[in-house]
Amino acid sequence: MGYRVAASTVWKILNQAGVDPAPRRSGPTWKQFLSTQAHTILACDFFTVDTVFLKRIYVLFFVEIASRQVHVVGVTAHPTGAWVAQQARNLLMDLGQRAARLRFLLHDRDTKFTAVFDAVFTAAGIQVIKTPPQAPRANAFVERWVGTIRRECTDRMLIVGERHLAAVLDEYVAHYNGHRPHRSLDQQPPNPPPQVADLNAAGSSDAQSSVA
C-alpha cells in the first residue's frame, strides 16, 4: 500500500503474534564465526573509572579473542577522535608482526570509535565489524573483562587520577596476562611466563646418573 514500516515495528507485531524469527538458512552463526576465526579477531571497548575527586576517566583496551590477552592502550579524561586513533596506531606498532595475523576488529557503535580510528585498521588489512545496537552480548569477551577488572581491581580501590589509574592497570594487566588462570585456557594465563629449568634438580639427577 506504499506505507514504509520500520523493522522494529514488524518485529513487535510478529512477537505479539507469537511468530518466532525465521531460522538462519545459510552461513555460520555468530558463535560459530567467533570460534572458527578467534585467532584472527581483535575486540576493543571503553570502560570508565570515577576518581575520588568525581572525575570520570576513560580506559581504552583491546582483547585478543584466541589467547584472551588484554592490551590497555590508553587512559584519559578526554577521549577525542584524534586521541583514540593515535592509540590504535600505537597498538599496531606494539603488536609488530602479530598484527599481520589479524583479520577482524570487533567494536560497538560508540561515537568515540571514529572513521579515522577504523581507517587505521583497514589500512593494515583488518576488517572492522560493528556489533548491532544495544547488543553487548555480541562483544561478550570485552564485556566479561570489564566485569572482571571491576570486581578484582578498580571497585576495590580509590583512584586519585589518571597517572594513578594507569599504574594500577599496568600492574593488573601484567597479572592477568601472565599469572591469572583462565578457565577457557585450561587454567593457564593468556601469556604465561617462560618455563625456567630447575638447575638444582638437573644437577642432582646428573650426579645420580654419574654415581650409577
Score class of each variant (00 low, 15 high):
19 V>M: 09
176 Y>I: 05
206 D>K: 04
204 S>I: 11
160 V>D: 14
178 G>R: 10
184 S>D: 07
20 D>A: 11
156 R>T: 10
83 W>L: 14
53 F>Q: 15
11 W>L: 14
15 N>V: 00
119 A>I: 03
177 N>T: 03
62 F>G: 07
140 A>H: 03
82 A>F: 01
70 V>L: 11
24 R>V: 09
199 L>R: 09
154 T>F: 07
136 P>K: 00
103 R>W: 00
179 H>W: 01
174 A>P: 02
102 L>V: 05
190 P>I: 05
42 L>N: 02
83 W>V: 09
119 A>K: 12
121 F>W: 08
104 F>I: 05
112 K>R: 15
158 L>D: 08
52 V>C: 12
197 A>D: 07
176 Y>A: 12
79 P>F: 00
132 P>N: 01
25 R>E: 14
137 R>P: 02
128 V>N: 12
169 L>Y: 05
172 Y>F: 15
123 A>D: 15
177 N>Q: 05
53 F>D: 15
74 G>C: 11
41 I>T: 01
30 W>I: 10
29 T>E: 13
154 T>L: 08
15 N>Y: 00
36 T>N: 13
74 G>Q: 08
175 H>F: 14
19 V>P: 02
102 L>R: 04
36 T>L: 12
152 E>H: 06
127 Q>I: 01
9 T>G: 07
135 A>G: 10
130 K>C: 11
38 A>T: 00
26 S>G: 08
185 L>T: 03
31 K>T: 14
150 R>A: 09
91 L>I: 06
157 M>Y: 04
125 G>Y: 01
61 F>A: 13
183 R>A: 12
105 L>V: 07
36 T>C: 11
71 H>R: 07
88 A>N: 03
52 V>N: 09
3 Y>D: 15
148 T>A: 07
83 W>N: 06
20 D>W: 00
124 A>R: 12
28 P>C: 03
105 L>E: 04
10 V>S: 12
106 L>R: 02
83 W>E: 03
151 R>N: 13
145 W>F: 14
212 A>G: 13
5 V>Q: 14
45 D>R: 01
142 V>Q: 10
80 T>Y: 00
100 A>P: 01
74 G>E: 05
139 N>K: 11
187 Q>G: 06
37 Q>I: 01
116 V>N: 09
70 V>R: 07
188 Q>I: 01
125 G>W: 00
180 R>Q: 07
105 L>K: 04
91 L>K: 06
111 T>S: 15
118 D>I: 02
83 W>I: 09
150 R>D: 12
149 I>L: 14
182 H>D: 06
123 A>Y: 02
117 F>E: 08
26 S>Q: 14
158 L>Q: 11
179 H>E: 13
111 T>G: 10
19 V>Q: 02
67 S>V: 00
207 A>I: 08
141 F>Y: 10
53 F>E: 15
96 G>I: 02
193 P>L: 13
60 L>C: 06
59 V>M: 08
139 N>E: 07
69 Q>L: 05
96 G>A: 08
160 V>Q: 15
57 I>G: 12
193 P>T: 05
137 R>N: 13
125 G>V: 04
124 A>Q: 10
83 W>Q: 07
188 Q>D: 04
188 Q>S: 09
142 V>I: 10
118 D>H: 06
17 A>N: 02
194 P>V: 03
152 E>G: 05
30 W>V: 05
22 A>S: 11
186 D>A: 14
